[in-house]
């Protein structure tokens, strides 16, 4: 009997609300079926510190907003065969990139969030990764192999895409997805 090696899958959470991960988990009982065929090697719900090598499929949720994410994404690209942008933040930048409309966006965002609207001990955050001048969608930083738009994409769509890839087919999501 030939035992097929499990497909190595990673999910990454960059600047996003985690809604896409929730949607991923919303696959519910189908996850059990999936788990027979995939091995989750890196994920916010798994305690793995470093992004492993030779990952087959990586789902990325969220946009790129700070330096850490920028470098992590470059590393992920190097170590991943198939990179999938999961959800509007990863695909278009969504709400994360809205700050790009402001001239001095980093300053304005930080001031609004940490000084103006804070009543108790307002101060700028320290010892956290520096925000980039502009926020980016994933494909502005690295090459993306597949896109699943949606805010969040439905669990069914995610399941459809992942099963299609597991079957060795390229999914066709025309008319199945919806931005927002």
């Amino acid at each position: 009997m030939i035992v097929l090696a499990k497909v190595k899958v990673a999910t990454v959470w960059l600047s996003g609300c985690s809604g896409c991960h929730m949607s991923f988990l919303d696959q519910d009982e189908k996850l059990i079926e999936l788990s027979k065929r995939i091995e989750l090697v890196y994920s916010p719900i798994a305690d793995v510190k470093e992004f492993p090598e030779n990952v087959d499929i990586t789902f990325i949720e969220g946009a790129v907003a700070n330096e850490e994410q920028f470098h992590l994404l470059k590393l992920i690209r190097e170590r991943t065969k198939l990179l999938i942008a999961l959800g509007d933040c990863a695909v278009t930048g969504n709400v994360v990139t809205l700050r790009n409309c402001f001239q001095d966006s980093v300053k304005e965002v930080l001031e609004k969030a940490y000084i103006e609207t804070v009543t108790y001990n307002p101060q700028y955050p320290v010892q956290v990764p520096k925000l980039l001048e502009k926020a980016y969608s994933i494909n502005e930083v690295v090459k993306v192999d597949f896109y699943i738009p949606g805010c969040p994409p439905s669990a069914d769509l995610i399941n459809y895409v992942i099963t299609e890839f597991l079957e060795g087919r390229v999914p066709s999501i025309e008319e199945k997805f919806k931005y927002g």
């Binding site: 409309c101 502009k134 502005e140 993306v144 699943i148 025309e174 008319e175 997805f177 931005y179 927002g180």
Partner: peptide
Amino acid sequence: QELASKFGVDHTNVSRNWER
């Protein structure tokens, strides 16, 4: 939004404008 879905425009290759 509807058209984007219908035609499978699931991302943009051209950069986006941020003029407010």
